[in-house]
C-alpha cells in the first residue's frame, strides 16, 4: 500500500469513526494527481524494462480511483463509488456529486474526500515552472515573494442528509467555476445573495491565498473590497498549495465551528465562507454554518 493510499484510508477511517458510521451509502473521492508514487513506479519500470515485465500491482494502484476502491474493499462496501479527476475542482466535483445523491434520495450518509500527494519527481517537475518558493519562509502568507509552498493531503468527511448526534457543521452551499470572466467580487456577492446571507452575517472568511505575490493580489482585492480586510484567515500556511486543498479548508472551517475557535478575540464563528481560486482558474465557494 503506497503512502497516498495509507493517507486516504486513514483519513476515511477517522471520519467514519468520528461519525460513528460503520457503512456509508456511497464513497465519493476527488483527486487531481491520483496515486503518483505508483504511477511513477509503473512508468519508470515501463521505460527501464522496455515495456516488458510490468508490475501489475503498480499499474492497478496507479489508477486514480485506487483510494476510493481500497476504502470500499476494507469496508466490504459494494455501494456507489466514484472518483472525480478534474484538476483544481476535483474535490468540488466530489462534493457536488454527494450533494446530488443526497438531494435525489439515492443516499443518506456519504463518505466524501480528497487525496493528493507530492513525490520527488512531481516536486522536481512542478518546481521547474517556478511555482514553489526557492527559499524557506516561516511567514508564507506574508512573504511578498513569488512562489508558494508545495502541499499535499488526504481529507475525508461524512455528509449526512439529516443532522446526527455527531454532526459538527452544516454545508449550506457550494459553488465552483472554471476559467470564468466574472470578477471574484461578483461571484462571491451572488453566492451570498443566493443564500440570503449578507457579508455582515459571516463570522469568518477563509481565503486560499498561498503566499505567491503573483496571485495574492487577487485575494487582497477580494479581502479589501468585499470584506474590508476583516475576519479573514488563510489556511495554506498549514497545508501548502495543492489542487484539492479546499478540502483542508472545509475541514478547518468545520473544526472551527465545532470547537468554537475564537479568531482575534472575536466571537466564535457560526457561519464561515471559504473562497479558494486554485491557479486563478478554479474559483470555488463553500458556505458552512453551525448546526
Amino acid at each position: 500500500m503506497s503512502r497516498i493510499i495509507k493517507m486516504g484510508v486513514a483519513a476515511a477511517m477517522e471520519a467514519l469513526k468520528d461519525a460513528e458510521l460503520p457503512m456509508p451509502d456511497a464513497i465519493v473521492t476527488g483527486t487531481a494527481y491520483g496515486c503518483l508514487a505508483d504511477t511513477d513506479a509503473f512508468l519508470t519500470r515501463m521505460v527501464e524494462f522496455n515495456e516488458e515485465l510490468l508490475s501489475p500491482t503498480s499499474f492497478i494502484q496507479s489508477t486514480h480511483n485506487t483510494v476510493g476502491a481500497q476504502i470500499a474493499l476494507m469496508l466490504h462496501c459494494h455501494h456507489y463509488n466514484n472518483t472525480y479527476v478534474h484538476r483544481g475542482s476535483s474535490f468540488e466535483a466530489a462534493v457536488l456529486d454527494a450533494q446530488s445523491l443526497i438531494e435525489e434520495g439515492e443516499a443518506e450518509n456519504i463518505l466524501v474526500g480528497s487525496v493528493d500527494e507530492i513525490i520527488e519527481n512531481s516536486h522536481t517537475i512542478i518546481s521547474r515552472f517556478g511555482i514553489y518558493k526557492e527559499s524557506e519562509s516561516n511567514k508564507l502568507l506574508n512573504s511578498g515573494t513569488n512562489g508558494t509552498m508545495a502541499g499535499e493531503g488526504a481529507t475525508f468527511f461524512v455528509f449526512s442528509k439529516n443532522k446526527e448526534t455527531g454532526s459538527i457543521a452544516k454545508l449550506e452551499d457550494i459553488k465552483t467555476y472554471y476559467k470564468t470572466n466574472r470578477k471574484a467580487e461578483n461571484i462571491i456577492h451572488n453566492f451570498l445573495m443566493e443564500n440570503n446571507v449578507r457579508v455582515d452575517n459571516i463570522d469568518l472568511i477563509i481565503l486560499g491565498n498561498n503566499g505567491d505575490a503573483k496571485t495574492d493580489e487577487h485575494y487582497n482585492t477580494v479581502a479589501q473590497h468585499l470584506f474590508g480586510g476583516k475576519r479573514l484567515v488563510g489556511y495554506k500556511n498549514y497545508c501548502g498549495e495543492y489542487p484539492t486543498s479546499s478540502a483542508f479548508a472545509l475541514w478547518m472551517a468545520a473544526r472551527m465551528i465545532e470547537h468554537g475557535k475564537k479568531i482575534n478575540d472575536e466571537t466564535s464563528p457560526k457561519k464561515i465562507l471559504i473562497y479558494n481560486n486554485y491557479k486563478l482558474k478554479y474559483p470555488s465557494l463553500y458556505l458552512l454554518s453551525a448546526c
Binding site: 524494462f49 515485465l53 510490468l54 508490475s55 501489475p56 500491482t57 492497478i60
Partner: peptide
C-alpha cells in the same frame, strides 16, 4: 492472483 502475476514477473526479471 495479482500476486501470482508479480511472482511471474519476479522469476522473469
Amino acid at each position: 492472483s495479482i500476486d501470482a502475476l508479480e511472482l511471474i514477473v519476479l522469476l522473469q526479471q
